[in-house]
Amino acid sequence: RLIESLSQMLSMGFSDEGGWLTRLLQTKNYDIGAALDTIQ
């Protein structure tokens, strides 16, 4: 599930440099909407 969510976020133009996006998705239970809300 992480790989699916991460690949979708990467395709939106986000980077996972340093693993920050992986950690964010894990804390949000791989919910892309919740991750995007946090980023904004």
Rank of each mutant, 00 (worst) to 15 (best):
F14A: 02
D16A: 06
M9V: 04
A35K: 02
L2S: 05
T22W: 09
A35F: 08
Q40N: 14
L36P: 02
F14H: 03
F14K: 01
I39T: 04
L10Q: 08
L6R: 03
M9Y: 03
D37K: 14
R23A: 10
I32R: 03
R1H: 10
S5G: 08
T22Q: 06
L10E: 07
L24Y: 01
L36T: 03
G13A: 04
R23K: 12
I39D: 02
S15T: 15
T38M: 13
R23W: 08
N29R: 08
G19S: 05
M9Q: 00
L2A: 08
L24W: 06
L2K: 05
E17W: 11
L36V: 07
E17M: 11
G13F: 07
W20L: 04
S7E: 12
E4Y: 09
I3P: 09
K28R: 09
S5H: 04
R1M: 12
G18Y: 08
N29S: 07
L6A: 01
S15A: 08
I39R: 02
T27L: 15
D37W: 11
Q26D: 04
E17Q: 10
M12T: 04
D31V: 08
S7Y: 13
G19Y: 08
A34L: 12
S15V: 11
R1W: 12
G19C: 12
D37P: 02
Q8V: 15
I39K: 03
G33V: 14
I32M: 06
E17N: 09
M12S: 02
M9S: 00
E4A: 13
D37F: 11
K28I: 12
L36M: 09
L36W: 08
D37N: 11
W20N: 01
G19N: 06
S5K: 09
Q26A: 10
I32E: 03
Q8M: 13
L6H: 01
D16T: 03
T22E: 03
Q40E: 10
D16S: 02
L36R: 03
A34G: 06
E17K: 07
Q40R: 15
M12Y: 07
L24H: 02
T22M: 08
T27C: 15
G33P: 10
G13V: 06
M12D: 01
L24S: 00
S7K: 15
G19D: 05
D31N: 09
Y30H: 05
E4W: 11
Q8H: 11
M12I: 05
Q26P: 00
L36E: 01
L6S: 00
D37Y: 11
G33A: 14
L10S: 06
R23P: 00
L24P: 00
E4D: 12
E17I: 13
Q26Y: 09
G13K: 02
Q8W: 10
A35E: 03
L25K: 01
S11A: 15
S5W: 13
G19A: 05
S15E: 10
T22D: 01
T27P: 02
D31L: 08
Q8G: 05
S5Y: 09
S7M: 14
W20Y: 07
L21Q: 00
N29Y: 09
G18Q: 08
D31K: 02
N29P: 04
S11P: 01
L21M: 06
L25D: 01
L2I: 07
D37A: 15
L36A: 04
K28P: 02
L6F: 05
R1S: 12
G33I: 14
S5A: 15
G33W: 15
L25V: 01
N29L: 09
Y30M: 06
S15Q: 10
M9A: 05
I39F: 05
I3T: 11
R1N: 12
L24I: 07
E17R: 08
S5M: 11
R1Q: 11
L36Y: 06
T27Q: 15
E17H: 11
S7F: 13
T27N: 13
D37I: 14
T38Q: 13
E4I: 11
A35T: 12
S11W: 07
G33H: 13
T38D: 12
T27F: 13
D37Q: 15
S5Q: 07
G13M: 09
T22H: 05
L6G: 00
F14E: 04
F14D: 02
A34Q: 11
Q26K: 14
Q40W: 12
L25A: 00
E17Y: 11
D31M: 07
N29M: 09
G13T: 03
T27R: 15
Q8E: 11
T22L: 07
I32P: 03
Q8I: 15
W20S: 03
T22N: 04
I3K: 14
M9R: 01
S7V: 11
L24G: 00
G19Q: 06
F14P: 02
Q40S: 12
S11I: 11
Q26H: 13
R1G: 11
E4V: 11
L24V: 05
D37V: 13
R23H: 09
T27E: 15
K28S: 11
R1E: 10
T38E: 14
L25G: 01
R23N: 09
S15I: 10
T22Y: 04
D16R: 05
I39N: 01
D16L: 02
L10P: 00
T22K: 04
T27I: 15
L2W: 07
N29V: 06
Q8P: 01
T38I: 13
D37R: 13
L21S: 00
M9N: 01
T22G: 03
S7H: 14
R23F: 10
